[in-house]
Write a protein that binds this DNA or RNA. Structure first.
Length: 803
RNA sequence: GCGGAUGUGGCGGAAUGGCAGACGCGCUAGCCUUAGGAGCUAGUGUCCUCGACGUGGGGGUUCAAGUCCCUUCAUCCGCACCA
């Protein structure tokens, strides 16, 4: 077969017939298959794209043949850092390089032969799209879910610019090697924490991999505890969050995050220099380093003292980098006797260690003692069990107005400001009189200007573009400035699945009534690396839009699958620097896109991925030749053998049954294994079965294969006389009556070791099976007269005789 | 450091607690062909035969463990400004 000619032929026919366009009037029978859209970073589709889109398209085709109206769109997540970095390096404008990359990738995606509905294509960098991304920002702002605050960024003083985490290597700027420091800037945030509880709870409602749900649960990080208010000598107050309020009598110091707003105010003149030095040291460390328990504890005394609200004790206030400003209240109480980190800290700085909990059996175990137990040295709470003491102490604090029960989340609000050019401009105007003013919706989109200077020099590129920046305030008309930052690209991708079904709507981001019919996405397929960010942001945006009344469902993705990662032949992640990149084009060129796709489906466990190998693809190619020969040949019946006919009918229906289940479960490698078994049986029984049965089997085989090798199956289908597309045919259904066997083989175990095989009628009950087993000569020999204490029969599998 | 995963023949990988290694690659042999890097058929976990041993290591639960529990080792991924 001339694969290239066939691919071109059918791609053109499918396109001319508009075979894969979604019929919006059939939304009631919809099945929404969505692959995570591509970032057009390189000029070509890489193997990861192929692995995501090829097999998933086969799943979509399978669903179509099952009678669903499949909607499978494709688009591009086109804003982002790499295009901008490329521009800084080469001078080629991000828009130009991105649009060029998109054009190439579109062409390759079309050659892949996936049934994408190109009528619904979107690019996030198109004004027609980001207009609505900006609209989304404005709705969140109106709803009180977008706000500004000071937040640290990575700052490179040599490049004079903000650096992404990715560009920080060992704490240094990857471009110039300068030590990165963290610098506070005013930035926009989305209040995802308002939804922490629902985001956690609704995980129970969705069909997602358990590990992904677990990761989100841990990311959200709900912990129940309490807040305790400490009063400084200056009269200022601050609160700490703790899960161990029962240890409050053991507090011997408190720690503020070095970034805590009170630090400057309370530091005594004698400590000023030391505190400043410590703060600038901390600015160099990443959160990951700061939280490492392996690292030696560091800290600095502020010179200030505060009052423990339960016992009036005066304790010193320190700053230390193991306390993060972004978690809890940015302050922790130090209880060295009952916390490992606090213990190390106290030991290093000579702070007192005071036991307030001992184990329930009354033993004074070694300190730090972090287990639950019974309170001691805790005034009226002595003798209480940990759980009771927590409650009682928090109650006392609550009465005194000094704290109380509190649930805390590790989840932080979503920072969406980026000091970059290639993104959706933030639709806000900063007016000297009115402050931050949202751009009126009628003025959207705030278009990204083309002519800007990317050279990093301390300002956002947009900030240097006068005609962009200078506007009049929509409220008072005074001269004002636009927000010079752009939105995090995750904002663009947090709602794109809502845009696809109504991608060309010029009046609205989407028609709510129609979207309610089309969503949620029935099957979402993409990489596991998005578990905690994109997949959480999308859930948040869906819930926020629901609460604003735009949509009426709770979750965007009903069912989720992660494909694995294909590694280089050396078993490590593919990268340019390692030179182990596999280019799919080479194989598509040599073997055709169907064969390449089928190899991706057969050679790996889809959810696992694994190292690439050249060896298997040839075997898939051979297998397809073998199919072609069998399906197209004449099938003379030399002598029709009933047993052979039964065997073939069994093989066919068993194949249908297994492949249907395997396709549904994304277990493509085993689905293909079952198809290979069927073809092997066809070869084995050819000539011994009636031509009619062989023809029927061939026709069915073509339909089973169609989702996996769409062009080849379409060609075979038409060569066999099919008039319409095979993708308008329905998927074969298993005839259970053909799977009934007269006799089944069972293994006979004696004390769990297999000693013999027996054939029993499929209708035999347990007693009969035992009787047959005990009369088998091999079994008699192996038993050697021993008495059977117990016989365990597992239907269709084995019988185990315990002696 | 925290969080998530993985570990099965020479290789890719199969196994609702029920005959470990489906299917394929590779390898071996036979057939076929003027020819084969084509095709068809058979064999192929390890060890010395009966048999024994085998799912990273060690322990446990069970009639039965790759699968469940405990422990240990190794490798990989994510960690909030890469997308």
């Amino acid at each position: 077969m001339d694969y290239k000619a066939i691919e071109q032929k059918w791609n053109k026919i499918w396109q001319d017939k508009n075979l894969y366009a979604f019929d919006k009037s059939k939304a009631d029978k919809k099945y929404y298959v969505l692959e995570m859209f591509s970032y057009p970073s390189g000029a070509n589709l890489h193997l990861g794209h192929w692995y995501n889109y090829g097999p998933t398209d086969s799943f979509a085709r399978f669903k179509r043949m099952q009678g669903y109206k499949v909607f499978q769109p494709m688009g591009f997540d086109a804003f982002g850092l790499p295009a901008e970095n490329y521009a800084i390096k080469t001078g080629i404008h991000p828009k130009d390089s991105t649009m060029k990359n998109i054009a190439t990738m579109e062409k390759q995606l079309k050659n892949m032969g996936a049934m994408f509905d190109w009528n619904a294509e979107i690019y996030t960098c198109a004004p027609e799209y980001y207009k609505w991304t900006q609209w989304l920002f404005l709705q969140l702002y109106k709803k009180g879910l977008a706000y500004q605050k000071l937040s640290p960024v990575n700052w490179c003083s040599s490049c004079n610019t903000v650096i992404a985490n990715e560009q920080v290597v060992d704490g240094k700027c990857e471009r110039c090697g300068t030590q990165i420091v963290r610098k506070e800037m005013t930035q926009w945030f989305f209040k995802i924490t308002d939804y922490a509880e629902e985001l956690l709870r609704d995980l129970d409602k969705i069909d997602w991999p358990e590990k992904t749900k677990l990761m989100q649960r841990n990311w959200i990080g709900r912990s129940e505890g309490g807040e305790v208010e400490f009063t400084l000598e200056s009269g200022d107050v601050f609160r700490v969050f703790t899960t161990r309020a029962d240890t409050l009598y053991g507090v011997s110091y408190v720690v503020l995050a070095p970034e805590h707003p009170l630090v400057d105010k309370i530091t005594t003149p004698e400590q000023k220099a030391a505190v400043e030095a410590y703060k600038s040291e901390t600015a160099k460390a990443s959160d990951i380093d700061r939280l490492s328990t392996a690292k030696e504890k560091t800290g600095c005394f502020t010179g200030a003292y505060c009052i423990n609200p339960v016992n009036g004790e005066k304790v010193p206030v320190w700053i230390a980098d193991y306390c993060l400003a972004t978690y809890g209240t940015g302050a922790v109480m130090g209880v060295p006797a009952h916390d490992t980190r606090d213990f190390e800290f106290a030991k290093k700085f000579g702070l007192p260690v005071k036991r307030v909990v001992k184990s329930a059996d009354g033993k004074n175990d070694e300190l730090p003692y972090v287990e639950y137990g019974v309170n001691v040295n805790s005034a009226e709470f002595d003798g209480m069990k940990t759980a009771d003491a927590k409650r009682a102490i928090l109650k006392k604090l609550e009465k005194a107005g000094k704290g109380g029960v509190k649930v805390n989340y590790r989840l932080r609000d979503w920072s969406v400001s980026r000091q970059r050019y290639w993104g959706a401009p933030i639709p806000v105007i900063h007016c000297p009189h009115c402050g931050a003013v949202p751009v009126p919706e009628k003025d959207l989109p705030v278009e990204l200007p083309y002519n800007v200077n990317f050279t990093p020099d301390g300002k956002s590129p947009l900030g240097k573009c006068e005609e962009f920046m200078n506007v009049t305030c929509p409220v008072c008309g005074a001269p004002a400035k636009r927000d010079a930052d752009t939105l995090d690209t995750f904002v663009c991708s947090s709602w794109y699945y809502l845009r696809y079904p109504d991608a060309k709507n010029a009046e609205k981001p989407f028609d709510g009534e129609f979207i309610d019919k089309m969503l949620p996405v029935d099957k979402y397929v993409g990489g596991a690396e998005h578990a905690c960010m994109h997949l959480l942001y999308s859930r948040f945006i869906t819930k926020a839009l629901r609460d604003m009344g735009y949509i009426h469902f709770d979750e965007p993705f009903k069912s989720l699958v992660h494909q694995g990662v294909i590694l280089g032949p050396d078993g490590t992640r593919m990268s340019k620097s390692k030179g182990n990149i596999i280019n799919p084009d080479k194989y598509v060129d040599e073997y055709g896109s169907d064969t390449f796709r089928m190899y991706l489906m057969f050679g790996f466990s889809y959810m696992e991925g694994g190292p690439w190998s050249d060896d298997g693809i040839k075997s898939v190619s051979k297998f397809l030749d073998r199919v072609e020969r069998m399906v197209l040949k004449d099938h003379p019946a030399e002598k029709v053998d009933k047993a052979a006919e039964k065997e073939l009918a069994y093989a066919l229906n068993y194949c249908i049954k297994c492949v249907t289940a395997d396709m549904e479960a994304f277990s493509f490698n085993t689905a293909i294994a079952r198809i290979m078994e069927l073809v092997n049986t066809m070869y084995k029984t050819d000539g011994k079965v009636s031509p009619a049965l062989m023809e029927e089997t061939s026709d069915t085989l073509i339909k089973i294969l169609a989702p996996i090798v769409p062009h080849i199956a379409e060609e075979l289908y038409s060569l066999k006389g099919g008039k319409d597309s095979v993708f308008n045919a329905s998927y074969p259904v298993c005839d259970e009556s053909k799977l009934v066997k007269d006799e089944i083989e069972l293994a006979v175990q004696i004390n769990s070791r297999v000693k013999a095989k027996i054939n029993v009628p499929s209708s035999a009950d347990n007693a009969e099976i035992e009787k047959i087993a005990l009369s088998d000569p091999k079994v008699i020999e192996a038993l050697a007269g021993a008495a059977v204490k117990k016989a365990i029969v597992i239907k269709g599998r084995l019988i185990n005789l315990v002696v």
